[in-house]
Design a binder for these strands. Structure first.
Lengths: 201, 201, 201, 201
DNA sequence: TATGAATGAGGGTTCATTCAT
DNA sequence: TATGAATGAACCCTCATTCAT
């Protein structure tokens, strides 16, 4: 039996949605518990039926966001060997997600410092596992000679920063669709690592 | 006769330094006026001799940071026509600055939303003027055929996001020096826009 | 089911009572939010369940006080034509109220300048409506010749000032009761406007 | 050698003037030391060359105001016996002063509660001496039968309240001059105490 | 489930005052 | 005489959180 509060949507979901939106636009510290309550159509006391703490709510959002991204990436890469294809897939997945959920992603990217040390360890752990997929693809490509760069570590960072940027400016209603955007970024990524361009469709 | 408070440094400077550091690491909303005071070796009341308001302090930091970057860029580009050289110079300047003052830059990049509408207008105005230098260089290069990309607007954003990222992870004491870093980014930037690689030294 | 806090009285009422007492004796600006809290047996944070703002609390007190006085006056005068009787009734009502609630009245009389422009407009509006009842009675009496004075406007002010004064010195426990006081003031008022003395009882 | 600060007027006087104006319009507690400084064209630190304390400044203003009123009243009444004439003179003096210096008078009337107990004793002492002149005149008149009232104490209060009111609404530029006003109040006062009207001029 | 009431701690800011210059 | 710098205490108000109902 689904329990839906006065907003028509299950309350827990409403709280998370509201939190994502507010944390993304005003920052964790800039968002008050009352803002959250109002946005979720709940009293601030009721909020605590759906979250243990404001900080834990943030941690949950970040953790689930990153975990889902990691899971998707693992599924995407499953069985693939070719570094170029792995890079392509990682970029397309990453950019697609960032374009589909820019708010959620902005929270993940900007609010790590607001976490408790314990939560922070968890979150950074997942993030590291995710970024290792990128490092591995890059390293393999460099070893096989299909990628070229004089500074692999720095190049990897540049590549990720470039892809992360999407969440900061992409607006879903714009002229450029998510898929076209992702394709374009795959092209850019190949350029960055010195891989041959993707064949035209 | 320089007036220096209990910290050995002129107080106004100490306040600004402390603010940059704290705003960068804990965020504007995460930084209390008492944190600021302690970091500047001042009472919280004394803080108000050196700033009208916490928000105006932030605005001043962002404004002066951006203005100085814009001024330096204008000086750097003065008299230059070649789009490739202009891009090189912009990237080197940008990355050097971001690596020299990562804190200050992080504040500029992350705390725009904490500004008053009025301050925000000012700050965004300067930032737009600065980014126009990049757009112009890119457009000129595309027109002359020395750059190639199917989506100029998106490519410009990707390029800037990549360069901005430096401020988020660069630590001055690391193995890679500021100048080498900047050179490497100039290489990456050329790749991104499809320009010929820079000749080896 | 009445909800009563640690003071035995409904909290909202306790807050208003305390505010009236403190604003009357120490002035609005001389009363701190902590004074108010202590007097209402509440923490200063809890205060804000019962008032939006210290200033709005003041405005509410003044508004309701004046409105209730105006309503009572309108009821009192309903159907009356004779200016002398109207003046008698106004004086008796006014003085009785001022003697019954000298604190509340002192706030109304002394703290208008502490109001926000918006609140001030409201409050002064009600006060003007109330004073118009006095003006009308005076004017009617002058027109009919039952009152005589060379300077009606000034006389009206003198009359009101005289009656307002009660709130500043009347203490409920004194030898003179509220009703006797009011009767005496009705006599004085008649003298002031040159009306015949009231018949002895 | 007169010492005049940057305002062209002796500084001490400027401070007092400013204090009178501000205390009258915003109240003692509503007036900050910085308001005072700005109004006196001085820094807030410099203020303390001309006053020991904000409270003592208030006390000085009130004391000198009342003392000067008392002195003038004593001079005015010197050698007079007739209660009616004494009352006339007191009213005219009182009203004239209140109309000439409404600000100063408002401070005296409204800010007694802001005084230190010690200052308060001083001030109230002078005020009591002054009011005794009124009581004496009234009592003498009642004894001699030229005044009639059933409640002398209350009537005296009503009389004083009426006269004090002038300071609250009189504005020097109005249609009614100070002297005419004072004459009118003398008429009203006679009415109040049941004395025969003053002969027409 | 849902919320009004309640609060200690802290938010940013201003207070009246002192003091070295 | 005049003032910038400095501050502890207090300003009004909001914070995240708890709890009885």
């Amino acid at each position: 039996m689904a329990v839906t509060g006065p907003g028509g949507t299950p309350a827990r979901e409403r709280v998370h949605r509201a939190a994502v939106r507010l944390f993304a636009t005003k920052g964790f510290h800039g968002t008050g518990i009352r803002d959250l309550a109002k946005a979720a159509n709940l009293s601030s006391a009721s909020l605590y039926h759906y979250m243990p703490t404001k900080e834990r709510l943030l941690a949950d959002i970040m953790r689930s966001s990153l975990q889902s991204l990691l899971d998707a990436a693992l599924a995407e890469l499953d069985g693939l060997d070719d570094p170029v294809e792995r890079l392509d897939r990682l970029v397309v997945l990453h950019v697609t997600r960032h374009a589909r959920e820019p708010m959620r992603t902005r929270v993940v990217d900007n609010e790590v410092d607001a976490l408790t040390p314990a939560s922070r360890r968890d979150v950074v752990g997942i993030r590291d596992a995710y970024e290792k997929l990128w490092s591995d693809a890059l390293d393999d490509g460099l070893r096989s000679g299909v990628f070229t760069t004089t500074r692999p570590a720095t190049t990897r960072l540049a590549l990720l920063d470039m892809c992360n940027g999407v969440a900061r400016w992409f607006s879903p209603g714009g002229e450029l669709g998510r898929n076209d955007l992702a394709e374009h970024y795959a092209d850019l990524a190949r350029r960055l690592v010195g891989a041959p361009p993707r064949p035209p469709r």
